[in-house]
Design a protein around this nucleic acid. Structure first.
Lengths: 107, 107
DNA sequence: ATAACGTATAGCTGTACGGCTATGGATTTG
DNA sequence: CAAATCCATAGCCGTACAGCTATACGTTAT
């Protein structure tokens, strides 16, 4: 049962891949060539990473002639945000429970 | 230049490891034995994962006799939250820029 | 002191994956 | 039509790592 978070975390775990996503967030739509120019890895590697980002829903691709434009899909980060705040909520709940317990013990 | 996000994302990318962290968030402090009981993997594997979580700052360990208690360190998620909101901010900035551009073009 | 218990470490194995080069398919240019 | 350009795919290699068993280390119990 590979959850949705799995792919998201795994996809963002690789530095090269995350850097690509960050550039797309910062600078907007880019072609594969433009991305490759400053990626520090070969073009096939960039294409491969972009494909994985796409499968994770983190980017969109748009074909125009012989070049492909990629852009960030920020909405895909939602599960990550949800997960994080859920962990925080669990933590706070336990903290509240502890507080309640101590309060009851005080009486 | 392995950034701080690297370890965090990589550490949370593994399902088994993330499940351990989630349990510690939900249920609070647990011993290695208690965690192993429902982890679905062997005890050495659990210990290994806990060590990695510890190196990432995601958990604390507390030794009590012959058993070790682990607990979640929620603060370690801060860089992750920062990164996410930063990406969102970049995205919104570009969106605002686009809006401004369109507004100027409208005149 | 010895045994039993809880955890950590060591060492091994298989697999997943990031990097590369080479090449193919599609499109634009000469 | 030929050549060049852009990207994707195929195939290979090396390394990282998650899982295992065996074992060592420290603590409690007998």
């Amino acid at each position: 049962m590979a959850e949705a978070h799995d792919m998201l975390f795994r996809t963002l775990a690789d530095p090269t891949r995350r850097a690509l996503f960050e550039r797309l967030c910062r600078e907007g739509e880019k072609t594969v060539g433009a991305l490759t120019a400053k990626a520090g890895v070969s073009q096939p590697v960039v294409s491969k990473h972009l494909n994985l980002l796409k499968q994770a829903g983190l980017v969109r691709d748009r074909h125009e002639g012989r070049q492909t434009h990629y852009s960030a899909q920020l909405g895909a980060l939602a599960p990550l945000i949800d997960w994080t705040s859920q962990m925080a909520r669990f933590w706070e709940t336990r903290f509240d429970d502890l507080e309640n317990l101590l309060r009851r013990m005080d009486q």
